[in-house]
């Protein structure tokens, strides 16, 4: 029982982290039609920036500064990179983000080296939050959930209650009409792209020390968030939310259960499960759990 509870909480906290990543990816995709292959690289940048800043002035300033820095880089990439490439169509954009992912990875190699860095959970958040019978639940996992939920509620309020949020919602379906009404749509694109990158950066700040900060972390999480966006339905925020929690819990349980089937342990096939889910979904429900468009 306590195993089940602790694993569920772990799954949810991991799922929320995945949603911080996939929400930006799916929003950018539905607004701009760009599938950003470099999205997880911004997650990695967030973790490395947080490592660097927290080594100098502490974790709490890093929690704010690193995502802002990543968001600013994202906006520059949109303004001076993607927007220029956009004229040549979606394939050019796709290749651009692909190249960008490699560029960021190599930059990380050059600056911080090829092995993991010592980015640790701050002392005040280290330790158990509560114990149930034999198991204990770390404070940091609770903190991750708190940060994720706070950020997600803020974003939801911003999207539904503010003017810029309305402009974004309208531009999802009719960008040209929104622009003809006098709204600076290119600037909205830049803000959304930067905002998505900042969210990925924040996920890196709180995920980098919970897991491990190393140059392969973008490549490890990148495919998972693509799976989430496809499973949830391309462009659907609600779908991405459900899919994030689903895959977060699925992966957490799969690696910790020691059931076996025909001599193969579930934990052995755990890494394949998200992709299996995606393949099945593409066959039986190609628009995803909550998507509106096919493929």
């Amino acid at each position: 029982m306590e195993f089940f509870l602790v694993q569920t909480l772990n799954g949810i906290s991991y799922g929320l982290l995945l949603f911080m990543l996939s929400s930006g990816l799916t929003l950018v995709f539905s607004l701009m039609g760009v599938l950003n292959f470099a999205h997880a690289s911004f997650y990695m940048l967030g973790a490395y920036f947080a490592f660097q800043v927290s080594a100098k002035i502490g974790f709490w300033p890093a929690l704010v500064a690193a995502p802002l820095l990543v968001g600013a880089i994202g906006m520059l990439v949109e303004r001076w990179g993607l927007r220029q490439v956009h004229k040549h169509g979606h394939v050019a954009e796709l290749l651009f983000t692909f190249g960008l992912a490699y560029l960021i990875e190599e930059a990380v190699h050059l600056i911080w080296g090829r092995s993991a860095v010592e980015y640790r959970v701050p002392a005040e958040l280290d330790g158990p939050l509560f114990r149930i019978i034999g198991s204990q639940y770390p404070i940091y996992r609770g903190f991750m959930m708190l940060v994720s939920v706070t950020v997600l509620v803020t974003i939801w309020l911003a999207l539904t209650r503010t003017r810029i949020g309305l402009v974004i919602q309208a531009a999802l379906t009719h960008p040209q009409t929104v622009e003809a009404l006098g709204h600076n749509v290119p600037r909205v694109f830049m803000l959304v792209f930067g905002g998505g990158c900042a969210l990925a950066g924040l996920a890196g700040v709180i995920g980098g020390n919970a897991f491990v900060t190393e140059p392969g972390m973008a490549a490890a999480v990148g495919p998972i968030i693509f799976v989430i966006v496809v499973v949830g339905g391309m462009g659907s925020l609600a779908g991405a939310f459900v899919a994030s929690l689903l895959i977060g819990c699925m992966q957490t349980f799969a690696v910790s259960l020691d059931w076996s089937l025909a001599g193969i342990k579930i934990s052995q096939v755990a890494p394949v499960l998200p992709y299996l889910l995606m393949v099945l979904l593409l066959i039986f429900r190609p628009k995803g759990l909550m998507g509106t468009r096919e493929g």
């Binding site: 009719h174 622009e179 006098g182 709204h183 600076n184």
Partner: peptide
Amino acid sequence: KAYEIAHRGLGYVPENRDIFPTL
């Protein structure tokens, strides 16, 4: 750009009733 033209005083009502359906 279209939004700059709109700010100069031109209005455009598209055909097909391009309302924002979810708002």
